[in-house]
Design a protein around this nucleic acid. Structure first.
Lengths: 148, 148
DNA sequence: AGCCAACGTTGGCTCGACCAACGGTATATC
DNA sequence: GATATACCGTTGGTCGAGCCAACGTTGGCT
């Protein structure tokens, strides 16, 4: 590809966007090879960490839009990785619960994603990877914590 | 938004993708306020640095697809920021040349983008920003230099 | 002359992120 | 107790970025 434009390469926004493209592709390929998607991992992980939750709660925790969450939960239900039940205490809500198969699936995805991270960050040392993650986390926090 | 899923936040790929979203939005807003787009800056900057070039060369240097380059050059021509002429030495090619107005425009976009970087990286010190840019550049290089 | 490669261009596709609106339900206020 | 307000899941979109295939034209090679 031989991207050379110096002014472009100096812009953090450009670097982040381009790197994100590679990351996105690697994740899609990795998870695609086991017939999964990034959103699946996000939801399964949230359920595993926080326990059963409504779709709205999942949406909030994962940053996935409510409407997209519907579709993802549908897919996970089809694969018997989660169960969707009406909440008896609040009939507006569904309670989504991860199944044992879902937990096994999550472990598998965790492995795949871990390999993808390795591939993505290949040129960086362990310390540098932590550095990068730390810096990005701070940037992200800054932009998600404040209202606008 | 209150994103909490720990497993998610630990994944570099997720952090990069999410940060990229913010970066992308900030850039779009910033440039949108002066009626421009990221691709405009990329092309103008490439022309300024390397001199007049064919669309194919621009495409290669900016990483923008050939077909999208067509549309971008169209827009820039409409705004009289570049000139598109047939290459007398190779009639398959167009020669794209930046105009004085294009250079002034480039300067303006540079200013806007510089402010956007500031906003994006607000929580980081100057040294940390350099660190982040350096790490991302290395990751990006690794994935663009090798064939696949 | 004939074949292959490169260029610009058109027209399309896909996918992620988002938004608006709806019916159904809970909560608060009077 | 009726009414307004807010929330939940769901449907059905929109929009833009990144791609890809194909075509006619032109150049280079042999």
């Amino acid at each position: 590809m031989e991207i050379g434009a110096t002014r472009l390469r100096a812009k953090a926004s450009w670097l982040i966007n381009k790197t994100s493209l590679h990351a996105h592709r690697l994740v899609a390929e990795g998870l695609g090879s086991v017939d999964a998607r990034g959103y699946h991992f996000a939801i399964l992980a949230a359920l595993d960490e926080y326990g059963p939750a409504s779709q709205a709660a999942l949406s909030q925790r994962t940053g996935i839009d409510r409407s997209d969450t519907v579709a993802m939960v549908n897919e996970l239900v089809d694969q018997h990785l989660v169960v969707r039940e009406p909440d008896p205490d609040d009939r507006r809500r569904n309670v989504i619960t991860i199944t044992p198969a879902g937990r096994r699936r999550l472990e598998r995805l965790e492995t795949v994603l871990s390999e993808v991270q390795d591939e993505l960050l290949a040129p960086l040392s362990a310390a540098e990877r932590r550095q990068l993650v730390g810096l990005l986390a701070r940037v992200l926090d800054h932009h998600t914590s404040q209202a606008g």
